[in-house]
Design a protein around this nucleic acid. Structure first.
Lengths: 355, 355
DNA sequence: TGTATTTTTGTGTACGTACACAATCATAAT
DNA sequence: ATTATGATTGTGTACGTACACAAAAATACA
């Protein structure tokens, strides 16, 4: 304990000298390799403990010829939204930054509308023997199982884009989904009177990755609950994402719920809704959605979308890969949660926003 | 160009072989050291360029016995607010994480109410010959000059807590001050009618570090300008921070501006204002301020503060030091701006907030 | 032409660890 | 006691670079 505070961090060599053994033996003890007598192992362990030995991970990385293999598991592009493309750019950027340090990034893609494809790719990935994974865990159950399988073989997982609480990932980088819903509700609370009609739309083919939207919805509802402002919130799951289906559903919903004041679309598909509303002519509801995509921004410009809540997918992916590398190479434990700022973009300030 | 894509990054040794020289000569060329004939230098340079040689910074760090010295320049504690203490914890945390890699963190402290003390410490720091600096640039002119002086001798500076736009820092980690003001105004816009009275309070002894508050104020005003909602904003600089002075000033301001709807305190001193308002009895204005400090939270609980806009000072400092280390040790260029999430804390949700 | 001097180039060791291999030791079998 | 066997420990080289020093080559001067 007092040795380490002297500034000279002692290494494997000093330990060997203290224990009157060779560095090879110390090395064996440190790595739990066999072939060391119980007595010397205990002696060395004791010295290691009391001296607070910290391995020099830079030297270790240099000496170890092992290739670090990082896998990414994300929705494939081209997809229905341009969102995932942006994210991929972040992965590529990170890859080029670390490839000269014995790191390889291997990309796996699944169909965001097909849980089975996630499982299939996840299985391939597990077989491949990579050292760590960066993934967008948009299917809760599948991702949870996958993460646990990884944990069992000591492969750390980094979540980006959406989090699964209580699942043991190395870290999460992305929105604080709950907060973003909460903040949205905060905004909405000013636009509405108690008991007015609010429409929450979850537009996604796979119900299972609604948790991405679910946490937002929870936050959204929590605000009103916290603040004792009862609202008439209608939540609708629209399971088809094409324009025809969405417009039909929205039309039905608007017919049933008259005088809707706010439409909150919980993901980036808000432009589809906006497009339909545009055809109705007179705009009566405030429209809120997610992500700085071209289509969405266009509607923002035209006034058919009022707020966009934005994150930075590229930066998320970039940071995710780098954080995993740092962890694998240098055991640098990342911040458990890195929340991207919740930027609220309006018609007035979108020009100055750099996604 | 095509060599590097073959996955085997060639090193100093391969270059030497290609050029028919020894690695020592290559080393000299790479480091621009003297003692190499023009001809061989050119030959080696050519090979380096066409092969896209990237030095292995891990090996470099191991071989270089140089100690990396990082300085921090922050307000001293104990100060009037507990804010800086939290930040220091982040510095200490980072320090303990990297001290075993040949890094020393040296702390410098200045008086946040005394620009001269900043200059004095900055001068000391410059003399000390450190390799990089993490600082809270709360005095614009002084910090700008300091950063430029650092740049001149190739010492990178990381800004935390507040940014100075257009000053060439390595990176900034902290709030997006403008956005935080903008968002606050967005909230305020719902609480007010056009042309109502808003009081913006900058409470700080040194006018010069108002840029921290100024950017917020700019964002605040920009929102109303962007959205064509003229407000009657009175901005007041209170140059003394003790309770007596603040309460006197606020009292005067409230007398002159009757029917103030919103009081926006642009830093963590909001509790001082809240304390005074409490003595007035009936609360008429919405009070908004910054930072999750005990005093502020207490007022939030009691309802004398309505919103607190929170950042994570400890995480800022932690990340700042680590980013600088990564840069100095491995030339890992950090994200230019890392914006902490703008968390809005109310009486209803403060319990679940982990600062 | 030979020596002194300077310029240029090559070599060896180190950084702290990993790992293959060699050497030593203890124990059991003969 | 001798040898074989396995358990334990020690040694050497490598990772890719930095740097001090030695060696060689080129130039200058006598």
């Amino acid at each position: 304990m007092n040795k380490e505070s002297q500034g000279a961090p002692l290494g494997i060599k000093e330990i060997a000298k203290k224990a009157n053994v060779s560095i090879g033996t110390v090395d064996r003890v440190i790595h739990g390799r066999p072939g060391v007598s119980k007595k010397t192992k205990e002696k060395i362990d004791a010295i290691i403990n009391e001296s607070g030995y910290q391995p020099n991970l830079i030297a270790r990385r240099l000496a170890s010829k092992k290739l670090i293999r990082i896998a990414t598991l994300t929705p494939k592009v081209p997809a229905e939204t341009a969102y995932w493309e942006v994210l991929l750019n972040g992965i590529k950027q990170a890859e080029s930054e670390i490839e000269s340090y014995g790191v390889r990034v291997e990309q796996y893609f699944f169909d965001q509308n097909d849980k089975a494809s996630f499982d299939a790719q996840a299985a391939r990935l597990l077989d491949s023997g990579v050292d760590g994974v960066v993934l967008t865990p948009i299917f809760i159950d599948e991702s949870t199982r996958f993460t646990e399988a990884c944990k069992a073989i000591n492969v750390p997982c980094v979540f980006i884009n959406s989090d699964i609480p209580h699942v043991d990932s190395l870290c999460y980088i992305g929105h604080n989904l709950f907060q973003s819903g909460y903040l949205t509700a905060h905004l909405v609370s000013y636009l509405t009177q108690p008991n007015e009609n609010i429409l929450v739309l979850n537009i996604s083919k796979e119900l299972e990755h609604f948790h991405y939207t679910l946490r937002k919805e929870e936050g959204f509802r929590a605000y009103f609950a916290d603040n004792g402002k009862p609202m008439n919130i209608t939540k609708a799951d629209i399971r088809k994402t094409d324009y025809e289906s969405v417009s039909k559903e929205v039309s039905k919903l608007l017919a049933v719920n008259n005088d809707v004041k706010v439409i909150f679309v919980t993901n980036s598909r808000v432009s589809t809704v906006a497009r339909y509303l545009q055809t109705l002519g007179k705009k009566t509801a405030t429209v809120i959605g997610y992500d700085f995509l071209n289509d969405n921004v266009e509607h923002l410009k035209q006034g058919t979308i009022d707020f966009l809540i934005c994150q930075k997918p590229q930066e998320q992916a970039h940071r995710g890969v780098l954080a995993l590398y740092q962890y694998l190479a240098f055991a640098t434990v990342p911040e458990a949660k890195t929340f991207m700022p919740i930027d609220i973009i309006t018609r007035e300030n979108y020009l100055s926003y750099r996604s």
